[in-house]
Amino acid sequence: MSLTSHVEELKKRHATLSQKVEAEQRSPGSNHLVIAELKKQKLRLKEEISRLSVTA
């Protein structure tokens, strides 16, 4: 897998997590711990994308 395709895959995963966060926030009785964990995962992906983009 090339670096570019890896970054694109990470961006897709980030977008999917964004959708999950939005869905969880809209749902009644949303679990704040789940939202926080999803946001942490998003942040880790964003940092990895940034790190790889600088390297490229």
Rank of each mutant, 00 (worst) to 15 (best):
E24R: 00
K12H: 10
L38H: 08
E9M: 12
M1E: 12
K46L: 11
T4M: 08
H14D: 06
S18H: 08
R51E: 13
S5V: 10
A23H: 04
L45M: 11
K46P: 05
P28G: 03
K42Q: 15
H32C: 08
K39W: 09
V34G: 01
R44Y: 09
S2W: 05
L52Y: 04
E48N: 01
K39D: 06
A56P: 02
K11M: 12
H6G: 03
L38R: 00
K11G: 07
V34S: 02
T16E: 15
L38K: 03
I49P: 07
K11E: 14
M1C: 08
L17C: 06
N31L: 00
K39S: 09
A56S: 13
K39C: 03
K11S: 10
T16P: 00
A23D: 10
A36K: 14
E24W: 07
I49K: 01
S30V: 02
L17Y: 00
E8K: 12
E24K: 02
S5L: 09
S27Q: 14
H32A: 15
M1N: 11
A36M: 11
G29W: 02
A36P: 02
A23G: 09
H6Q: 14
S30C: 14
K39E: 15
L10G: 03
L33N: 14
M1R: 11
L52N: 04
E37A: 13
T4E: 13
S2I: 00
K20G: 01
K46W: 03
R51V: 07
A23R: 10
A36W: 00
S2C: 10
A36S: 15
R44D: 12
Q41M: 03
L38S: 01
A15N: 12
Q19M: 11
Q25S: 07
L43W: 07
K40F: 02
S2D: 15
L3S: 09
Q25V: 07
K40Y: 08
L3P: 10
S30T: 05
V21G: 01
L43I: 05
S30F: 12
G29D: 05
N31W: 02
L43N: 10
E47Y: 07
L45E: 09
K42E: 13
R13F: 03
E22G: 01
L3T: 08
Q19W: 08
S5T: 13
N31Y: 01
K20Q: 14
L17G: 04
E48G: 00
E9T: 09
L43S: 05
G29C: 07
G29R: 04
T55F: 14
R51L: 13
L3D: 10
T16N: 14
T55H: 13
T4L: 12
L38E: 05
S53V: 03
S5R: 13
E47N: 15
A15F: 08
L52P: 07
H6Y: 15
Q41A: 03
K46R: 15
S2N: 15
E47K: 15
E8G: 03
H32G: 01
A15H: 11
V7D: 05
L3I: 10
I35Q: 02
R44P: 06
S5I: 10
L45T: 06
I49L: 02
E47P: 00
I35A: 00
L38Q: 01
L33T: 08
H14K: 11
S5A: 08
A15G: 03
Q25I: 04
R44M: 12
A15S: 15
K40S: 13
S30I: 00
I35M: 01
M1W: 10
N31C: 02
K12W: 01
S50T: 05
K46N: 02
K42C: 09
